[in-house]
Design a protein around this nucleic acid. Structure first.
Lengths: 204, 204
DNA sequence: ACCCTCTTGTGCCAAAAGTCACAGGTTTTA
DNA sequence: TAAAACCTGTGACTTTTGGCACAAGAGGGT
């Protein structure tokens, strides 16, 4: 399991491989479990070896998706916290049963200047996250919700089907269930999709 | 001028100082000049030694502020581009006459693993920008425009006064001039500020 | 079969934000 | 100093989004 991770991230230095094996732990988590909670200190960097984690911000009853962590991805905010002790400003919850690699923060920090491949990993994580977030940011600023919803469905579809409830979509897009229901109805009337129970089929 | 920069960023390695002096150029730019244009390739990392630069995204007639670059700050997106050749997705325009330090991208990339202080500079730039952007993102998602406007004024005030037109505020907050005018009127009626010509005085 | 929870649909109304149109200031500049 | 360009205010209207209430359907478990 770790080998696959080392390979995918192109971590080739034997010393670094050894350090990771020695200092990292592997844990399993079921759907619904919190990996990171808002306002808690971050002690370990978590890398998703398998499964899916949803990272979001909340405010009162609303939520908004920051990003999903898929296989071989790490939480950029945790990574950031490795460079300066700080509290989390987000929540992370397991969406699909997952296996995590946990690396205590002090190593993450040291390795950055010690191992070239770790340095690249760090920089790339920041870069990709930053670009992704800017993109989401301007979508949020410029696009009407209807478009954001449709784009989101397209991006999340597997074989043109999205298996999510309206409530889940609402939370990911930072709005309420009724609004999503109505917009979906409009999209259906527009023949852009077909609605089922917890199942949205994209057309064409 | 460069010395001040080296000192502020705690760049202590003599070799790196030497490299910067040798390879970087200094340029001056007047208000209104474009530093970076959307869709252009990024060839040099620009660091603001003096002055102020506004970095924003645009869509049709609308704009939205990504961040301001103040003294001794660099454009995170340019920094990112140093690690992979790519086009800019933003515009950067000079707001206050400024002096820039220009470093060709290939150096920026190499120095990251070669000089510890440069590595720290890079990581810190990414970290701070990322946190800032997440903060803006959830404001955009959760806060009504009226609150965003007021918070923005507070953050931009010098001695409780903001010297900006409604049009400028609209562009920075991603909305239209009329909306800003009306919200400002409400805030004035609410005794939170007093309106003048291109001048908004915050009260209390 | 029955209960409970989750899911979806929708009517009605309110608030927030955007658009269009126009009028009268102020500042810049030629 | 007169024209042009920018700045502010505002009425009237539309669209978008949100909040509340209620009803009906689906699905799971005991």
């Amino acid at each position: 399991m770790i080998d696959k991770f080392l390979h995918q991230l192109r971590i080739t230095e034997p010393e670094l491989q050894e350090e990771i094996r020695k200092n990292a732990t592997i844990t399993e988590h079921d759907r619904g479990e919190f990996i990171i909670k808002n306002n808690n200190y971050i002690k370990v960097l978590k890398i998703v070896l398998e499964g899916k984690v949803r990272v979001y911000q909340e405010s009162d009853e609303r939520e908004i998706l920051i990003y999903y962590l898929n296989t071989m991805e790490t939480c950029t905010l945790s990574l950031s916290a490795c460079f300066e002790d700080c509290k989390s400003t987000v929540n992370a919850i397991v969406e699909e049963k997952c296996i995590l690699l946990n690396i205590p923060v002090r190593f993450v920090h040291d390795w950055n200047f010690k191992y070239k491949s770790w340095n690249i990993f760090t920089i790339n994580t920041f870069r990709e996250s930053y670009h992704h977030l800017i993109h989401e940011y301007s979508n949020l600023a410029f696009q009407p919700l209807k478009d954001r919803l449709f784009d989101y469905l397209v991006s999340k579809a597997e074989q043109d089907i999205v298996y999510k409830s309206h409530q889940e979509l609402a939370k990911e897009l930072g709005t309420t269930r009724e609004v999503i229901s109505r917009l979906l109805k409009k999209l259906e009337a527009n023949k852009q999709l077909r609605l089922g129970q917890k199942e949205i089929q994209l057309l064409k």
